[in-house]
Amino acid sequence: MLEAGVGELAHDPGRRLVSGGHVGRSERVAVIGVGILGASVGCNLSRQGAEVVFIDAGRPGEGVTNWSFSWVNASNKTGRRSYFDLNVAGMAAYRELAETIGPDSWWHPSGHLRWAGDTAAEAKLLETAELLAGWDYRVEVCTGAEVRRRLEPALRVPAKTPVLFYPDEAWVHGRHLVGRLVGRAVESGAEHRFGTAARNIGIGPDGSVRTVTLSDGSCLDVDVVVNAAGPSASQVAGLIARHLPMRREPGVVTRLGCAQVPVHRAMHAPHIEIRPDGDASVVLHSREIDAVIDTGEDPVELARQLHEAAKHVVPELGNARVAQTRIAYRPIPADGFPSVGAVPSVPGYYEAVSHSGITLGPVIGRLLATEILSGKRDEMLADFRPERFPQ
C-alpha cells in the first residue's frame, strides 16, 4: 500500500514542457504503482524515449495484480457499449503484445467457459450470448457433454446444460507479465524505487507537478506523475488535493497446489470461478464468498468454502491443498468504470485506475503513453476521463 501525505515543494527551474502542455520525450515521468496498469504505461513511455521512474511500496506485480482472477474478456462488460469496445481493444492489444514480447509463461489464450445453475440465470446467460453475437463477439453454445468430450474432461457438469464457450478469451499470469514489462522498460533506461512509498507530490507556482517525495526521504524532480496505485489511488490523488471516489470492495482469492492441474482454461461455474495458474496451481474465486468477507469470516474458512465449491465442479481438486489465500481490495472508481487520462486542473498529473486492469492493461498503457507524450486524447477513453468526478 502507498502511504498518504500532502505537501508542496519548490519549483524546478530546469523543468521543460513542449507546446500544448504535454511532455517531450526526454521528460521524467514517475509511475506510482507497478501493477499491470503502471507497468504497461511505464513500459510504453520508456520504449518511446521518456525517462521513467517506477515507484511502488512493495514489489512489482505482487499487489492486487497477483490476487486477481486475471481473466481477459469483454463478455462480462456489456453494461455500456463504449466499455465493451474498450475491453475488446484490450483483448486485441494482448494478442499484439504476445507477438511482440513472446507469450512465455504469462499468456494463456485458451478461451473461457461459463454456465449457470438454474433456469433464470441460464436464460440471462443465453440472452447475453445473443447480444454478444450481434456485436460480432465470438461465442459458442455447447452442451455439458460436448464440453467434457472436447475441452474439459475433468468437469462435473450435467450433460444437457448449455455451456457458453468464448474462444477468444484468455487468462494472464499477471505477476510474470509485469516482470516482463518492467524488464523491457529498464532495458530502455527506466529506473525503479521499489519498497518506497510516495509521500508527497510537489506542485509548482503554476499549479503543475514538480516533484515526488518518497518514504525514504528522497525527492525526485519530475514532469509527470501517473497515478496507477490501484486500491491506493485515492490516497495518491489526495497528495494533489484531488478527491477520487473509490468503492470499498474486497475480494478473496485462493491458490490450490496440485500435483497435476485438471483444467485447461478459465471458467465460471455456478458459485465458483476456477482457472489454471501454471503447472502446479489453480486459482479460485467466488463473488458469493466475497459477499461475506465483511462479516468477519476467517480467511482460512473462506478458503475452505472456495475449495469445497470447486470440488463439486472438478472432483479431482479434492486431492489439492490450499496453498495461499489473500483478501485484496479491488481498484474500482465509484461509478464502476476506469479513470484514465489527464486531470486538467493539475498539469502533469494523470490517472490509470480500473477494476478491469488485467484486460485493459496493454491498451491503456498504449493510449495513455501517447496522450502523455503527444497530448493526443483518444476518443476510446472519452467516457472514462478523470474529470467526470466533480471536485
Rank of each mutant, 00 (worst) to 15 (best):
E3Y: 08
R16D: 10
H22A: 14
V29A: 11
V53P: 04
I55P: 02
A57G: 13
G58L: 06
P60L: 05
K77W: 14
G79V: 05
R81V: 15
L86K: 09
L97P: 02
T100C: 06
I101F: 11
G102W: 00
P109T: 03
R114P: 08
A123R: 13
L125A: 12
L126K: 10
G134W: 07
D136M: 11
R138F: 14
R150A: 10
A159F: 09
E169N: 12
G174L: 07
V178I: 08
R180Y: 11
G183M: 09
R184G: 12
E187Y: 03
N200Y: 02
S208V: 02
V209P: 11
N227G: 13
A228V: 10
A229G: 13
P231L: 07
G238V: 07
R242T: 12
G251N: 03
V263M: 13
E273D: 15
I274L: 14
R275Q: 08
P276T: 00
D279S: 09
D290V: 03
G296P: 07
V300G: 04
V313N: 01
V322D: 04
A334R: 06
P338W: 06
G341W: 00
P344N: 14
V346G: 00
H355W: 08
G361L: 05
I364Y: 05
A369G: 12
D378A: 15
E387D: 14
P390E: 11
